[in-house]
Simulated scan of single mutants.
Amino acid sequence: MTANDSRKTLRRLADARRATLLPGAFNALSARLIEDLGFEAVYVTGAGVTNMSLGLPDQGFMGLAEIVEHTQRIRDAVQLPLVVDADTGFGNALNVYHAVRRLERAGADCIQLEDQASPKRCGHFEGKAVIETSEMVGKIRAAVDARADSGLLVLARTDAAAVHGVADALERAQRYAEAGADLLFVEALTEAADVRALPSRLASPLVMNLVLGGKTPVLAQAELAALGYGFVLYANAALQAALAGMTRALSQLRQHGELAEDPMLVAPFAERQRLVGKPAWDALEQRYAG
């Protein structure tokens, strides 16, 4: 699939408004698993990259170079459309312009930008602050102008609900759409009524972020589809599952001093090799053998 094809696919999914599941990948192998299981798109999670690669909380420690590198690796591993978390754009509107150019070249099909003040923090943490609406509008305009391909989507996220209330978040989201954002993301709604009402208040395709253990009530995909959401984001479900799995396996190893190839604890050796494409590499090696 070419970049043009994957961007058109992502646009079709957004416009279908059937609450397409969007799992988060924190590295190339997690993205490969998402594709292997039949999901339709991948979210390159900034929190996941920060947690899994740096061992740090999602509080603005990830830089542009790190998310570009992870995007490139994931792009090489999968054909699915990629929605990439670019946090605040790593600075002002000029930094956003530069970030969009780099992430587009790295293989992003959609770039997410948020209106938090820097350094940002996870949308479900306390203590968030947001920049002025006018500054974020400038960032979105810069992102739109920076695109080499007009098919690259811009996803605008607002964290204002936790700071100034839902009404302000809605007003900001509308301004961001008017500035050129293709998709909208109102983060950390705390009431199911607000989640249900959002699609009737904003015309653009919407992303709903469901954080396991976070602030937003978890509604079923079927209900979110009926409401008209474009995507349902599970940004770090795979990360949390990986931590739980590693903890179980390593705890047993620590307790008993050994570990069997139990599929309830560890993926079989053969399955790991299949997922990383070893049979294809073996065939390629034979092709070039003397």
Rank of each mutant, 00 (worst) to 15 (best):
N27E: 11
Q240G: 07
T247I: 11
F26M: 13
G228F: 06
D5F: 09
L212I: 13
A220L: 12
T133L: 09
L170S: 04
T190I: 06
R17H: 13
A146I: 12
E135L: 11
V186N: 08
T247M: 04
V68T: 14
R175K: 15
G60V: 00
K139P: 04
A47G: 12
E40P: 00
T190F: 02
G48M: 07
E126R: 08
R248F: 09
V130N: 01
E135A: 10
R105E: 14
G257H: 09
A142V: 04
L13D: 00
A173E: 07
A242S: 14
H98L: 07
D58V: 07
R75H: 07
A238I: 00
Y229K: 03
Y97W: 05
E187K: 03
A249S: 14
P217Y: 05
L155G: 01
M264G: 06
L37T: 07
H164Y: 14
T216G: 14
A249Y: 07
R287K: 07
G127K: 03
Q112I: 14
A289G: 01
K278Y: 09
R32D: 06
L82D: 01
V42T: 12
E135Y: 09
L259A: 13
R105I: 02
A129Q: 11
A235M: 05
V42W: 10
T133Y: 03
R196Y: 05
A99E: 10
A106W: 01
